[in-house]
Design a protein around this nucleic acid. Sequence first.
DNA 1: ACCTGAACACCGTTCAAGT
DNA 2: ACCTGAACACCGTTCAAGT
Lengths: 279, 279
Amino acid sequence: MVKQHELSQHMISEQAASDTSCGCPHGGLKGLLDKSLARIGLSKSEQKKVDREEELVDLAVSILNEEGFAGLSLEKLTAQSRYSKGTIYNHFSSKEDCLSALCIRAVSSILTLFKRALQFEGSSREKAVAVHYSYQLYARLQPTLFMAVLSSKAPGVREKTSTERTQLMDALELEINTFSDQMFRDAIDDGSLVLSEHLSIETLSFSNWAMSFGTNALATSATEAKAVNRLDPNTLLLQNISILMDGMNWQPLSKDWDYRKTWQRVEKEIFADDIQLIE
Amino acid sequence: MVKQHELSQHMISEQAASDTSCGCPHGGLKGLLDKSLARIGLSKSEQKKVDREEELVDLAVSILNEEGFAGLSLEKLTAQSRYSKGTIYNHFSSKEDCLSALCIRAVSSILTLFKRALQFEGSSREKAVAVHYSYQLYARLQPTLFMAVLSSKAPGVREKTSTERTQLMDALELEINTFSDQMFRDAIDDGSLVLSEHLSIETLSFSNWAMSFGTNALATSATEAKAVNRLDPNTLLLQNISILMDGMNWQPLSKDWDYRKTWQRVEKEIFADDIQLIE
DNA sequence: ACCTGAACACCGTTCAAGT
DNA sequence: ACCTGAACACCGTTCAAGT
């Protein structure tokens, strides 16, 4: 169980770190990402610091996975690393800053998975289903990190995060939003979705995200007594987003198309290597 | 701002505490609630302990509201209370146990608001809209507590919570689920909702909850750069659940009925006193 | 310029002593 | 039986001294 998390953590994080040539059309994030992730055009000492930071975030993620949220402390991070407290505080201005670094790692990984999902061959609604699949996949592979992203939005955390990291986080969120909006723009362009007068792209995009987030968050934090346990966890998200997309009148409707087959195709054709880590 | 939170906290908590004669038909919760909340049939010393616990939870809530999540410590709770550390630990077996006590308070308040919302005069879909309204109201009045409920589901918190409180929490959740299911049963009974072959009451009930929770959680933790800020916060939730309920084909559909008027009626007719605390 | 670890304040938790 | 607060371990954060 823990071993699986470690595996998946490394797999996903390596993808994210090596994905600086993301090929996204927006590019607004590039500058910021280069500053903290890229491996070229840096002096020796800068390079050393970047490497060490990645090493420290890796270590922090493994502590988070093994000991849970409350178990993560800069004290432990120091003890398990090769460095001293002063050096740790040279990288993270506070415990909350360290948490934000983990969340940036998480959101980067999610964005990478989203882009992979978009490569699924199918209608625009099927592509959106694939993106939801990838979001659920991340929530299952990295439940603690998935939940951490939300808690990093709390005012107390944000206040104690360095401005550089806050900016990077905001830029990543903007890129996710832009990505999500684009899915709906594509659907409108290919004619499968028609905007009604009261509903903007932004509204649809947000409702789509809220449903996926809410479902994954509740499923992740499900306890024995919870409502989620009455339901099949493997079709939960698909059912929820299907109802929602039907409500948007996004063609083809679920009565006219078997999206369970789409879901299975996404699993096999895009995320076959990753799904093994869960079951 | 802070003052408003204090006000609302007291208002809501008093309602919850005095609502032991809730008149709900399930009743399975009664025994558990009586054990920790009721004010009759207890010896002097038991009564004293119950009173003190309420006092301590009140105090903990006010610390949470004033200093945020990270600012809540049993050290501070001790210092601000009239008791010593030993007595505090007599009530809460750990810091996490104290957090769980806060969440039980929160969920009780939410349930009370739900029951109030259900008194709205209208169709079954309108009543459901009223319940969503009350959920959003709570998220706005008590943002920190609203988010705390989720984090109390983390394994690390649950493990360190006393078994009595875990049982009480589970019982409350079950009552909320039963309440939610009942809304859908009512809709089926009055003919405004028809179950299709793939969708059970449990599925609809959960998707409804996931959307409301997801929307409120994202709105609560919205930052400047967030997608939420592009949208009107006052119609966000209504729009999201309208799309979802349309997808369920819950009559009357939003194209045939102006639910913004329903929303405003709920505000005026049910929660007029509470809404002032926000704006 | 960067790193180290001692030092201090704060917090969670326990338990012997007191009532 | 219940309450108190000293005691200890752990953690966040700083900074003078060292390289």
